[in-house]
Nucleic acid binder design. Structure first.
Lengths: 245, 245
DNA sequence: CGCGATTTGTGCACCTCTTCACAAGCGCCT
DNA sequence: AGGCGCTTGTGAAGAGGTGCACAAATCGCG
């Protein structure tokens, strides 16, 4: 949730899948449904109710139904959703039918971990190339891939038909890397560097900042502490707050 | 954004900081403002306008002003915000005045990277203990910390007064780890495992799933591709989409 | 064939968040 | 002192997301 400004995309009833112009909030949840569906498929079930899937995905069942209804009607009343069909449908909407190639720039601490992360391959992504600006890191082999110098980005990106760039460099280097990625034609960037990237229209940037997540937790922790401190409450027994719905 | 259901916390005008009961969306942006402010402080400026700070943080200036107004009036009309004062104020609200101790469970690929990540220490967090269930990993030293067996969690958590738990285990192990963390009194969890955690009320869970971020990007990439494919548009020249505001 | 149990799809009301637009306040310059 | 330009803080309108509650649809069984 950040530098996204997507157009109306006026229901241009195209030949192929019709692209129903989903709400962002729905798009953000589809991957979670997909993961839950794969888990359910492995247990052998071949249909699942909205209630069941919602539990597995950690959301409200009404919300799940509304989300899925945006893709079309792929459920059967009185029965539920066909697991396999729904998986295919969501993967199709998310554009995961083709395996997407990812370029990872910055092979430091975090980049190393990302390069070795299994979760990508198993969900339709292929890390196709690794880059770093530090000459001492160039040539290193990680998980079967050789780290190249970032100057080769342009050439390699075309060869490997990169469709997504991941930035795991220190913050000061990130903007320059982003510019290079954009110059090569990459229009989707996942940014782990703690800074704001400025990119032209039409380029999507998503940001993941691990420290920010901790700080948000810190706020809630702080709030909880100052709530239990004052009220005439039992500070004793356990941490179970008697609050919320 | 997930398992958060925070109460009204009825403006209980307490003695100390008053805890103004911020909107979640605001809380999620405060850390970003904080980072931007630190960057601005380093350039030597000692005041900053809402416009300037908003740019540095990548948000709308009106939104920024409304966010800050929730903390109270710490700006001066015609001048802007005092950088140092605002930093102190935000850190205070986020509960970052004390250094928080973090326990990291799961020292695999990702856990390794997290254990070595500088960004935590520099922003008020201390990784106080590392755990893993794999005996062959126990004893290993990472960044000056020895990996302990997860069975020691209870003892160590108290010793180190852990306030946040980070789960970086494979998905199947995550729920058990979460249960243990909760049992020890941890009420804030950052979960990197691709699964839904079920925790009692009063415990906050934030989830980070790297593959999900890629899948969201994939969707937009897919959408962009199917838009440029049909319209009578110049597929040539560059990737600059002529869409959006 | 009809009925009841079950589950989807959705209209509606509520709520949160965003954005605009502007009055109020502050400092500086004359 | 007074006026002017700049910037904050906020009311109000709008957009988007959520969740309830129920009608519509489907299956299985007698």
């Amino acid at each position: 949730m950040s530098q996204h400004r997507h157009p109306g995309a006026t229901g241009r009833a195209g030949a192929v899948p019709a692209l129903p112009d989903l709400p962002e909030a729905t798009v953000a949840r589809l991957p979670e449904y997909l993961r839950a569906l794969h888990a359910i498929a492995e247990t052998g079930h071949d249909t699942v109710s909205s209630e069941g899937l919602a539990n597995a995905a950690g959301v409200n069942s009404a919300k799940l139904r509304k989300d899925l209804s945006h893709l079309g009607s792929y459920g059967t009343r009185g029965v539920g959703y066909d697991v396999t069909l729904l998986i295919d449908q969501i993967e199709s909407v998310l554009g995961l039918t083709q395996c997407r190639s990812v370029a990872l720039v910055g092979v430091g601490n975090l980049g190393h971990a990302l390069a070795g992360y299994d979760g990508f391959a198993s969900r339709g992504f292929r890390i196709a190339a690794l880059f770093d600006a530090d000459p001492s890191r160039v040539g290193e082999e990680i998980n079967g891939l050789v780290v190249r110098h970032v100057d080769e980005l342009a050439r390699v990106a075309v060869e490997e038909s990169i469709s997504i760039g991941v930035i795991a460099t220190p913050a000061p280097a990130a903007q320059a890397v982003a510019d290079q990625l954009v110059a090569v034609g990459v229009t989707s960037i996942l940014n782990f560097a703690p800074c704001v990237l400025s990119v032209p229209e039409g380029v999507d940037v998503r940001k993941v900042d691990l420290a920010i997540e901790l700080q948000i937790l810190s706020f809630h922790e702080h709030r909880k502490a100052s709530l239990t401190a004052l009220p005439g409450g039992l500070v004793a027994t356990d941490t179970q707050e008697a609050i919320g719905t």
